[in-house]
């Protein structure tokens, strides 16, 4: 039986490298938010309340391009779909916690905390304390990095320093390592073709993003099923 102290120490140690990656991402978000002309308060409030890298970066980018609230909302729902999956997989892990604490832990569900929480569960069984420390570490890194990014973004001219390039390049750096299996590659290639075509047909339409987000994964699904049956 591991003591609480040991659990906290292990959780901090395992969360740290990922927290640094999250901080780098949070920095990009903070800088991007200043390009949307958001105040420091709005930028940090979003990190405090939403705590989601993909949702925040995507929505701020859409905000800059002048998207309407409903299309931003649909995109956020689409991006959040995977949280259902993560939550479902983590449910047994978090079950021993009281209801109130479990709701708090649910707020910490993200790509990274899901990965660590799942590995821990498979090794030691349910451990809400471990998950709480991991999620808390990521939350702190995210909020502090957003603040630093927003502060820096306000002081420097983003175009001069190439910070407007940070967003597409960060996404490329996140995307490429994820392209490991045929269905994922097929999804990405379809999305590339579809988004380019839609952009050509309807420049400035925020529906391009939603349409691509809904339809391109169907091609990935088709490829996955075909190779499964074949």
């Amino acid at each position: 039986m591991l003591t609480n102290q040991q659990t906290v120490r292990t959780a901090l140690l395992e969360a740290l490298p990922l927290a640094l990656a999250i901080a780098a991402y949070g920095l990009s978000y903070g800088v991007l938010a200043t390009q949307a002309h958001w105040s420091l308060w709005s930028t940090i409030l979003m990190s405090l309340l939403v705590f989601s890298g993909s949702v925040q970066l995507v929505i701020v980018a859409m905000f800059i391009s002048g998207a309407a609230l409903p299309s931003m909302l649909i995109t956020a729902v689409l991006l959040n779909l995977r949280n259902l999956l993560y939550g479902a997989a983590l449910a047994d892990n978090l079950a021993p916690a009281s209801r109130k604490y479990r709701w708090l832990l649910a707020f910490g569900v993200s790509d990274e905390s899901f990965v660590l929480g799942n590995i821990r569960y498979q090794k030691y069984g349910a451990d809400p304390l471990y998950f709480g420390v991991v999620a808390g570490t990521f939350y702190s890194a995210w909020v502090v990095a957003s603040y630093i990014g927003a502060y820096l973004g306000d002081l420097i001219d983003p175009v001069r320093w190439g910070l407007d390039l940070a967003f597409p390049i960060t996404f490329v750096a996140l995307l490429i390592p994820a392209l490991t299996q045929k269905p994922i590659i097929a999804t990405a290639i379809t999305a590339l073709g579809m988004a380019s075509l839609l952009h050509h047909m309807m420049p400035n339409s925020e529906f391009n993003l939603i349409l691509t987000g809904i339809i391109a994964p169907l091609v990935g699904l088709y490829i996955a099923r075909r190779s499964h049956h074949g």
Binding site: S54, V58, T75, L78, L79, L81, R82, F171, L174, L175, A178, L179, P183, I184, T187, A188, T190, A191, L192, A195, L209, T212, G213, I214, I215, A216, P217, G220, L221
Partner: peptide, 8 residues
């Protein structure tokens, strides 16, 4: 697959 498509 959804996040991949949206990122692209």
């Amino acid at each position: 697959f959804v996040p991949i498509a949206i990122m692209v």
